[in-house]
Design a protein around this nucleic acid. Sequence first.
DNA 1: GATGAATGAGCTTTCATTCAT
DNA 2: CATGAATGAAAGCTCATTCAT
Lengths: 215, 215, 215, 215
Amino acid sequence: MIVIQYKKDELNNRILEEAEKEFFEKGYEHASVRQIAKRAGTTISNLYNYYESKEALFEALVKDECEGFQYFIQHHDTMDKPDEAWESMDIRVWRRILEDFIHSLPPIFTKRFYILLNCSRGTRYEETKTFFIRFMNEHFLEHMDTMGLKGFRELGNVIAEQMLGGILSIIRDYADEKQVRHLIVEYILFFFMGYMGLMLSNTGQWPNPGAIPAK
Amino acid sequence: MIVIQYKKDELNNRILEEAEKEFFEKGYEHASVRQIAKRAGTTISNLYNYYESKEALFEALVKDECEGFQYFIQHHDTMDKPDEAWESMDIRVWRRILEDFIHSLPPIFTKRFYILLNCSRGTRYEETKTFFIRFMNEHFLEHMDTMGLKGFRELGNVIAEQMLGGILSIIRDYADEKQVRHLIVEYILFFFMGYMGLMLSNTGQWPNPGAIPAK
Amino acid sequence: MIVIQYKKDELNNRILEEAEKEFFEKGYEHASVRQIAKRAGTTISNLYNYYESKEALFEALVKDECEGFQYFIQHHDTMDKPDEAWESMDIRVWRRILEDFIHSLPPIFTKRFYILLNCSRGTRYEETKTFFIRFMNEHFLEHMDTMGLKGFRELGNVIAEQMLGGILSIIRDYADEKQVRHLIVEYILFFFMGYMGLMLSNTGQWPNPGAIPAK
Amino acid sequence: MIVIQYKKDELNNRILEEAEKEFFEKGYEHASVRQIAKRAGTTISNLYNYYESKEALFEALVKDECEGFQYFIQHHDTMDKPDEAWESMDIRVWRRILEDFIHSLPPIFTKRFYILLNCSRGTRYEETKTFFIRFMNEHFLEHMDTMGLKGFRELGNVIAEQMLGGILSIIRDYADEKQVRHLIVEYILFFFMGYMGLMLSNTGQWPNPGAIPAK
DNA sequence: GATGAATGAGCTTTCATTCAT
DNA sequence: CATGAATGAAAGCTCATTCAT
C-alpha cells in the first residue's frame, strides 16, 4: 500500500514536471494534455484521475507561487522598506539594501512563477501579470508624486512591465537560483538608476558636464 | 442572395484588419482562419481566394514592416549616429538627438511591427525578435567594451530584450503614432540613463550625496 | 474577330493539352480543374466558358477515341480477318498479317485512348475498359471452342485484360507512333504464341523433346 | 448511450476490413478516413485512437505483405530454381515445377498484396510495384541474354508488368486462395509458352507446319 | 471571352474531456 | 490506480462549380 502510495507520488511528480515543461514551452492554451501524459509515461485518462481538467493541472502547478505572490502583495508594506535607500546616493548602499531584500524573499523566482505570469493566458490566472504591473506602477506613481516628478506617468506602466519582464527573462534564462537573484539585483539597480537619472535630470541637477569621469 | 459587393479591395482590407486583430490577440499559431473569415464577413474558402495559406496571410501583414526593419538593420551605421550623444552629459542634448533619430525613421512603430516581433511564433519570422535582441546586445557590448564597463555582460541580452519589449508595449498600448514616438524617445532615454548610471557608478563618481536635489 | 477566334482555339488547345497531361497523370477523379486552368494559363472560371464541367472536359478529350473505338467494335467482323493466320504455323506469316491489320487501323493508339481506358474512373466512360475486355474475352472463348480447348475459360478475362494492358503500357511508355505499332505487333505475337502453345501442349503435340533446338 | 461493446479487437478488425475495402476500391489517395470510420461504425476521432494517421492505417494493412514480399525478393535465389524447367520441353514438367514453387510460397496472394502493389500511390510504398517489375524484367533480360534472344529487350518491361498485372487480376477476381494459386500457375505457364515460342520461332524451329495438330 | 468573388461540402488531423471496465 | 473506447468540435485547407461583371 505504501509502495503504491509512493508510486502515485512519483507519477504525480512526473506529471507536474512534464506539465511544467509543456506549459513553459507552449503556454497554457497551446499546451497539449496528450503530450504531458505521454511524456510523463501514462495515459490521458489516468492523468485525469490526478487532475480533473487541464486548468486544474495548471492550477496545481502555480498555486503555491500564486499564494506566495499574493502574500507578498498584501504584506509588502511590512517587507518592503527600501525607501531608506533614497536617502543615500551611494549605489553600493542601494545594492546592499536590495540584496538583503531580494535574498530575504521566499523562493518565488522559479520557473513556475514565470509560468504563472507569462504562460497563463486562457486560465483564470491570466490577469495576474497585468495586476502585478498595475500594482508596481502605482508604487512608482506614488514615488513620482512624492519626488515631484511630472510628465512620466504614461511611462509608468511600460517601465513596470519591462522591469517585471526582465526579472522573468532572467528566471527563464538561468537555472541557478543564486545567479538568478544576483542578476535580478543588478537588473533592478539598473532600473533604479534610470529612474533616479530621470528625476535628477528633470531637476536639472544631473547629469552635468562636471560629473563626467575624467577619461 | 443578390446582395453584391464587388469591391475586392474592401473585403481584402477587411480581411487584413481582422487578421491583424486576430494575430495580435492570439498569436499566429492560435489564431483561427475561420474566425478571421467570419469576422471579415466571408467564408473560409473565399478567404483562400485572397491568400493561399494562413502563413501567406500573415506574411502579407508583416512583409512591409519586415523589409523596413531589414533596411534599418543594414543601414543603421549610416542612420544611427547618436554616438556623439555620449560626449555630452546634458540629457536635453540626448533627447534632441534621439528625437531627431526616432522621428526620421520610416513608420515602423506600427501594430504590424508588434505582430512581426511578438506574434510570429510558428512562422518563418519567428526568429526576428531574437535576432533583433542579439543585434542590440552586440551594440551594447561594443559600447561596454569601449567604456571599459565590466561585469554586466550577462545582463546585456536581458536589457536589450526589455528595451525592445518596452517599445513594443508602447506600440501596443497607444494608437496615436506621434505619441508613440514621443514615449519611445522618453523610454529609451530612461534606459540610457540607467546605463549611464551603471557606468558612472562603477567609476565611483556618480551618484554621490552632493548631487542630491535639495528637498 | 478572326484573331479572337484564333486566340480562342489556341487557348482551347492549351486547355486540352494540359487536361490530357493532368488526367493522364492523376486519373479523372484525382485530376484538378484548378491545375489544368493554371497550367493552361487561364482562370478556372474561364475554363468553364469552354467546358461546362470537369466531365465535359474529359469527354471532349476522349470523344473521338471513344467513337473510333465503338466503330471498331461494331465493324470488327469486316476488318478483323486474321483467322487465316491460324492456318499457317509460320510466325512470319502471323507477323505480316498482324502488321497489316495494326497499321491499317485509324490512329487509336494514342495517349487519349489510354486515358479513355485507364483514367476514366468516375466518368460515364469508366466501363469502357471492362466492356472491351469482355469483348476480347468472348472472341477468345469462341476461338477456344472452335479449337476444342478446354479448362482455360477462367483465364480468358485475365489474359484479355493483360493483353490490353500491355498495349496500353506501350502507348504510355513510347511517344513515337510507329514504334508503338511495331511493339504492339510483337506484343500481340507474344500472346498468340502463348495461346498457341497452350493449345498445342494440350493436344500433347507441342512442346516435345524433339522440337528442342540443338544447342 | 449505455450501449457498450468493449471489444477492441472487434472494432479494430472492422476498421481493418473497411479500410481494406476502401483502399482497394479507391486507392490510398482517394480513400476517405471518414468513410472507413463510418462504415466501421465509429467516429473519425475514435479511429485515430487506433491508428495515428491514414498512412499508419494503410501500413498496418500491408506491412506483413510487404515484409513477405521483401523476404521473397531477398531469398529468391534459394527458392527459385525453375531453371531446370528450361531443360525439359514437356509442359507437364513445367507445370509441376511451377506448382511446387507457387504452392510453397507463404500466403502472399492476398487482397492486401494487391493493395500494396496497386493502391499505394501517395504512400511510401508507391514504388513497390515499379521495383518489382524492374526486378522481374532484369530476370527476363538475363534469360534472354543466356538464350541469345535479341530484339525484344523493349518488351521486357511491358511483359513483366502484364505478367504481374495478371497475377494481381487473379487475386482481385477470385476469393478462394487455392483457385488463385491454380490460376496463377496456368497464367504463368501461358507466359512461359509465349516466351518459349518467341525464342524457338526466332531460331526458325518452331512453330512449323509439321507441328500442326491434325484437325 | 475573360475574370474575380463567392459557396458549401469535403478532406485529414488534433483537441480536451468522459466513462465503463 | 489505470486504461482503452468514444465523442464532438475545431483546426487548416482543397474541391468543383456558379455568377455578376
